[in-house]
Amino acid sequence: MEILMALVVGGLYGTGVYLLLRPTPVKVIIGLAILTNAVNLLIFTAARLTRGHPPIVEETLGRPSYPIADPVPQALVLTAIVIAFGVLAFTLVLFRRAAETTEADNLDEMRTTDT
């Protein structure tokens, strides 16, 4: 499973980088979203994988009965996912505004804000 995850992280990362380098704004934003996913997955994987045991305490025991998935990266990634959404939305609107202001649909032409 670790190798599989590593491959997925690598694949997503490569795709994200490639898309970020495109001159089309939408591709850059999609690249950003994919890169975010790759990073989240990397953090999640780096803390070791545990199949099927969520970090939830048994009601009767007062502690988990078996080795659980690490809750720390989960808490980190959870907020990261939500914030990434905010960043994505902001970038999307920003690019849209920039495209409208500079009347360019190409990032290379959006080099100045003086219109």
Binding site: M5, V9, L42, R48
Partner: peptide, 21 residues
């Protein structure tokens, strides 16, 4: 050229993920 850079970056991340675990 971008594809080469992206592939290299992706491979590196794969290796790093493996190293991390």
């Amino acid at each position: 050229f971008d594809a080469v850079v992206a592939t290299a970056a992706g491979l590196l991340m794969t290796a790093l993920t493996l190293a991390a675990v």
